[in-house]
Design a protein around this nucleic acid. Structure first.
Lengths: 337, 337
DNA sequence: GTGAAAGCGCTAACAG
DNA sequence: CTGTTAGCGCTTTCAC
């Protein structure tokens, strides 16, 4: 068995109560006593049992991570996100409990599921903007941080990137290269970021005096195949396009394949910009110019927010989006004169 | 507050104990009573509090996942592994608690760390074969499943792929294409799989009557850069090579870059085989022939093992390796005559 | 300053 | 078959 608080109490000669208070930094304990107790605790290598602790005091040191949608895990960035969450969480002595899609299938009122697991707050990724749970979370007093889905409740907030600005910068990059006919392969509109990216696309065009053309936009679904299909459709219907912006690297990779198969040479015939900067973006040929979002950082930010939300009842989260960064590689080039 | 067992007891008119037993499927409860209690529980939407449960009964429904080494998360396959773990775990009503590298920095006796977190068993990935913790785990009675590191203890086992066979098959593939001079870029020897892959390389060569040549082997470190360096060194020192086998896709991508930069055309001048079949393997140009390992499946297998280890004190794990599958793409071709 | 006692929600003897 | 009694390891009133 592990060493418990009783062992520390016995060995130090103090009561369990005093040991608890000494170790938890209460100020109604003499410094001398505290020092002694801490010494004994260290000697015994005592670590409080978190299960017991969270059972009695409702202050819980566990974050729940919900990864919704079977495909979410396939997306490479989830790994970085988790990595960031863990690093930040363990800095604050928080644990990270992961739930898969199945966990929600129980139909359990979500927050209840968390409380039963001793989870103090949740980080949710992969949520669709049409999900009814969104309204619930907004009203709930259970700490929640959404990834890439806006929300504003007493205890709910979100973290994201400035997608509009990211896309807009990419358009500026293309315009600087002389492009005027720029297509856009977007993801599905159940993802909030896609609304943002579309808005950024329009805004970017407007900024450079270009007119938005509905026919230049294709709605994919984040799969490689939809990237292929999108590229094919866009270029066939609008052969005047000299550049295509794609809302994810994976779709961009599909578009790249399709365009190459159709006989286009990149970037000479057409320029291509992805989104994410996943590992493989540097590995395609030509290497993908893409809008990088640092998912690790986003993970840390999410953890930071949820921990504050859990610890401080008065915390008023302010949403600040992380910035993306355009990584220029070989898939974009000056428009052929 | 959530609904507790007391609420169910009160509402059903039975004692807390009876409710507990009825709900946990004990057979010393009349079916009539059980039915009534279950009905009430359902009506109240009662779910037992796992924190409390694991505090008293030492049977814990949480698996701890340790992802060691900062870089592990960067490796794409971790996401699939986690995905498999979660799916299998939630099927058995187990939760998954993730620990980062930092958690182990406390110097806490590992198993103690788990017990304090209410974790019944651990799955560990990224462990080096030189890690002293290995001996500890081997002797320990704490349920542990290692990923890709062999271990055999009363409560410790491991899951992995048949790396030898995988590499061997790739060599057969190359030999079938006429290759006789095959180089090998391995990972670092702190990873068990690299010993296996080296053994597989030797075995595969022998199988086809080829002689092992020390100079044909380069030890990288799983980074793309080491792949580049390895390709450069191997091909410069041994220009007679017509094929190179690489112990990871990322290193293979590096090798591909380097070889292309050096003016080689693949697969005409030289064939290249990767390992993993990560997403990007299909996206490089030429697309990478590679040895696919299904990390999702490995995750499920690991979860299955750890759960049995936790639940059944008499469970004797038998190690059975998962098979890899050679995915032939465009980076391998017949040797130029 | 410190300790005794109560109890978080649950399971597990032990009686009846 | 069912209920009473004791705790799991910890925090937290409330006395002293």
């Amino acid at each position: 068995m592990n060493v418990t608080i009783r062992d520390v109490a016995k060995k130090s000669g103090y009561s369990i109560t005093t040991v608890s208070r000494a170790l938890n930094g209460f100020d109604d304990v003499s410094e001398e006593t505290r020092a002694k107790i801490i010494a004994v605790a260290k000697e015994l290598n005592y670590q409080p049992n978190r299960v017991a602790r969270s059972l009695v005091s409702k202050t819980v040191n566990t974050i729940g991570l919900f990864v919704l949608g079977r495909s979410s895990f396939q997306q490479g960035f989830i790994a970085d996100l988790v990595s960031g969450l863990i690093d930040e969480a363990s800095t604050h002595d928080f644990d990270l409990l992961i739930f898969g899609t199945q966990s929600l299938k129980t139909g359990l009122p979500f927050t209840q599921l968390c409380r039963q697991r001793g989870v103090g707050g949740a980080v949710i990724t992969g949520l669709k903007i049409t999900d009814p749970i969104l309204a619930e979370l907004e009203a709930s007093d259970f700490p929640t941080v959404l990834i890439d889905v806006p929300i504003k409740g007493p205890k709910a907030t979100y973290v994201s990137f400035d997608n509009q600005e990211g896309i807009s910068q990419a358009i500026t990059h293309l315009c600087d290269l002389g492009h005027r006919k720029i297509g856009f392969i977007n993801g599905h509109m159940e993802a909030w970021v896609c609304h943002e990216r579309l808005a950024g696309y329009k805004k970017g065009l407007a900024k450079h005096g270009l007119v938005f053309n509905e026919a230049y936009v294709y709605n994919g679904d984040f799969t490689k195949e939809s990237g292929r299909a999108g590229a094919k459709e866009l270029i066939e219907k609008n052969p005047e396009l000299t550049a295509i912006l794609v809302a994810s690297d994976l779709m961009a990779a599909g578009a790249l394949e399709e365009l190459t198969a159709l006989g286009y040479t990149l970037p000479d015939d057409i320029s291509l910009v992805g989104f994410d900067d996943q590992t493989f973006a540097a590995l395609t040929s030509p290497a993908l110019t893409t809008i990088k979002q640092d998912e690790y950082l986003l993970g840390r930010l999410a953890a930071e927010n949820i921990i504050k939300l859990i610890n401080d009842p008065n915390y008023q989260p302010e949403v600040k989006s992380l910035t993306t960064r355009l990584v220029v590689r070989q898939s974009t080039g000056p428009v052929k004169s």
